[in-house]
Computed example of a mutant assay.
Amino acid sequence: MREILREVGMIARALDSISNIEFKEIDLTKGQYLYLVRIYENPGIIQEKLAEMIKVDRTTAARAIQKLEMQGFIEKRDDEINKKIKRLYTTDKGAQAYPILKREGDHSNAVALAGLSEAEAETLHQLLQRVRKNVEVDWEYVKKGNKREY
Rank of each mutant, 00 (worst) to 15 (best):
N146A: 04
R2W: 13
E118N: 11
E3K: 15
K84I: 00
T90S: 03
V137E: 11
L101V: 10
K30Q: 07
P99H: 14
A97Y: 04
G72F: 10
F23D: 02
V135K: 11
E41K: 15
E104Y: 05
L113V: 04
G105F: 04
N109Y: 15
N20K: 09
K147G: 01
I100T: 15
E69A: 12
E22K: 15
R13S: 13
Q96G: 03
I39H: 02
E120A: 12
E104W: 05
K86E: 06
L5A: 12
R2S: 12
R132N: 08
I11T: 13
L34K: 11
S17A: 11
L101S: 06
K86Y: 06
L15D: 10
T29I: 08
E52A: 11
A14C: 09
D79T: 06
E140C: 06
A64G: 08
K30H: 09
I46A: 11
L34G: 04
D106M: 10
G44K: 13
R6L: 09
K49A: 10
A97G: 03
S108H: 15
A62Q: 04
T59F: 01
L68V: 06
G115L: 02
R77A: 10
K49N: 11
I21D: 15
Y35F: 12
V8F: 13
N20T: 02
